[in-house]
Computed example of a mutant assay.
Amino acid sequence: MAKRVCIGSVVMASLLAAGCGSRPEEGFLAPVAEIDPGSTAHTLLVATTRKRDDRPGTLFNGERSTPLDFAKIVVSVPEKHAQGEVEWASTAPGSSKTDFVVRQANYLDDEKAFVSTLNAQLAARPKGKRNVFLFIHGYNTMFAEGLYRFAQVVHDAQAPGVPVLFTWASRGQVTQYVYDTNSATAARDDLERTIRLLFASNAEQVNILAHSMGNWVTVEALRQIRISGGLPHVSKLGRLVLAAPDIDIDVFKSQMRRFGKPAKPFFIVLSKDDKALGASNFLAGGTSRLGAASDSDELAALGAIVVDMTDVKGLDSSNHGKFAQLAAVAPRLNAVLEGGFTTPRSSANAEEIASGSLEAIVKLPITIIGAPFRLIAGR
């Protein structure tokens, strides 16, 4: 097993490190003094099982801590931002003109302060738009990386909800796969607590997006909620999106048997060329991962809408972060989903997708959105 983990870590390192320069560990979250007027600010709330870090501009590191901790951070996205990308500063803390930077950052004392801050953010929005957008990141993710990636998704998707990041104690090292797996598992109770706080808040709807190993802790937390008797105000649940889920597919099927077919379909974003999940498959002894599943129709039958991004060219060498590119078409995709699926039509080409005519290319029972990705739904 030790040999398998070692070899698997080397494989992951070769896949993931190729697209990375220096990692943004220390100082990249120090608030910048000068704010470019063309940049856009997003206020993110944080719930975390990470340990606070005393180094200036770092806030949290990859070590585990209890109890659940909280923060409020204002992230600035540069005016000349490329969709799907995070414009990293070459040196900390960066410039708001060219980079993702922090404008303000504060710890919150406890969950009471967290809920109070959340409700204040919700109250600033008109009725009917008082939503929460919860994101749970994946393996090999430093705190700053998870924060800025979420800010990019929020910005590109034009997400109207209050962004809440649940960040568990990943060390941000490819050789720490086992540590990260255990950290994700240990965070189940805290994620369950966070979800309960969100549903008990003044939010009208709670949408959840999990990526990679973050899907494991998310599905486990939801399973715990189900076993304990359910969730008050469960009608507030909006969209549940499982992006590139690093979950054993047989384990997932067993979890779904516990859930039963959901009243609302959930979304699985997958790509059959996801090399990081291929490495995870190797570490797991050859067992397929949910995010690289080949039988999309089978997943659709479980109650999922499958977003197959295999034909999308990834911006990272591992093809593991394609979900971030999906954010760019989220406003149009949401309009299609909210309008309901229409009668069968032929699939569209890339030009039709680019022109914004998504409404014209939805069909049932297998829903295809042609190139660059496919949307597959069960009956």
Rank of each mutant, 00 (worst) to 15 (best):
E87Q: 03
S95L: 09
Y179R: 12
P163Q: 01
S355F: 01
A17N: 15
G378W: 11
L165R: 14
L59I: 11
E204G: 01
Y179Q: 13
V362P: 12
G8V: 00
L237F: 06
R103G: 04
L337C: 08
L326Y: 10
T66M: 06
G27A: 00
Y179H: 15
T175I: 05
V75H: 06
P126Q: 02
M256I: 00
L237C: 08
L364P: 10
V32W: 04
G286E: 07
I361P: 11
L283N: 14
L290R: 09
P126Y: 01
A71S: 02
G138H: 05
L198H: 03
R374Q: 12
N182Y: 15
A200S: 09
L15H: 12
K236P: 09
S280R: 14
G340T: 08
N215H: 07
I376L: 05
L299T: 04
A187L: 04
G138L: 02
S296C: 15
E26I: 15
D248L: 00
Q176V: 08
Q173L: 04
F282C: 05
T185A: 15
F259A: 12
N119V: 08
K261C: 00
L237K: 12
M142V: 10
M142A: 13
T141L: 07
V336F: 14
V102A: 08
G339N: 03
D273Y: 06
P67D: 05
F100C: 06
V312C: 11
R379V: 05
V11L: 09
I136A: 06
S116P: 05
I366C: 14
I7L: 06
A210E: 11
V219W: 09
D316T: 06
S228Q: 12
T141P: 02
F150L: 03
G286H: 07
A324N: 11
V174G: 05
G356C: 10
K272V: 12
T343I: 07
D297F: 03
I247W: 01
T98I: 00
D109R: 05
K264W: 08
N140Y: 03
A113I: 10
N140H: 07
G378Y: 13
W168G: 03
K275N: 03
S65E: 09
T218E: 13
G21Y: 06
S271N: 13
G138S: 08
I195K: 09
S317P: 04
T167S: 15
I368H: 14
Q158D: 14
L16P: 04
A304V: 03
M142H: 13
A221R: 00
S355A: 13
T49H: 00
D180G: 07
